[in-house]
């Protein structure tokens, strides 16, 4: 039972973080808060990918001459780390685009509240 908990608690924390992000996206009325929820959801996915790359007793993905590279279990999985490395930077850039669009919306309609925005559009 304890082994099951140690093997799975990271997934539960990631799921809680994902639900916090979905709560922000669905239930908040302000568009800025929705965008922050989107960022939290994205970070939860990043943490999940980094969590599944771990191995028991392995070292970081930089080659150490004393540790043989033939046994794969000696090193963490570098593929997921690489994918998330690019995903973080692209996430920052897309967050910049999201806030840019919010600024454009505010310049035009002078509100960021969802309901007021729908009323002004119609």
């Amino acid at each position: 039972m304890l082994e099951f908990f140690i093997g799975h608690y990271a997934y539960w924390l990631v799921i809680i973080l994902l639900c916090v992000g979905i709560y922000g996206i669905l239930f908040k009325k302000n568009l800025i808060k929705k965008t922050i929820g989107l960022a939290v959801l994205q970070i939860s996915v990043v943490i999940y990918w980094v969590a599944i790359a771990s191995k028991e007793g392995a070292t970081v993905t930089t080659l150490d001459p004393n540790i043989p590279v033939d046994q794969v279990a000696n090193y963490l999985n570098p593929l997921t780390h690489t994918l998330m490395l690019t995903a973080i930077v692209v996430g920052v850039a897309t967050l910049g685009v999201a806030f840019t669009l919010l600024m454009a919306i505010y310049n035009r309609y002078e509100t960021l509240d969802e309901q007021e925005l729908l009323d002004k559009i119609q």
Binding site: V60, T62, L85, T86, I88, V89, V92
Partner: peptide, 10 residues
């Protein structure tokens, strides 16, 4: 060492 273009650019 850990590092590269993305981190250094940031």
């Amino acid at each position: 060492s850990p590092g590269g273009g993305f981190q250094g650019g940031a």
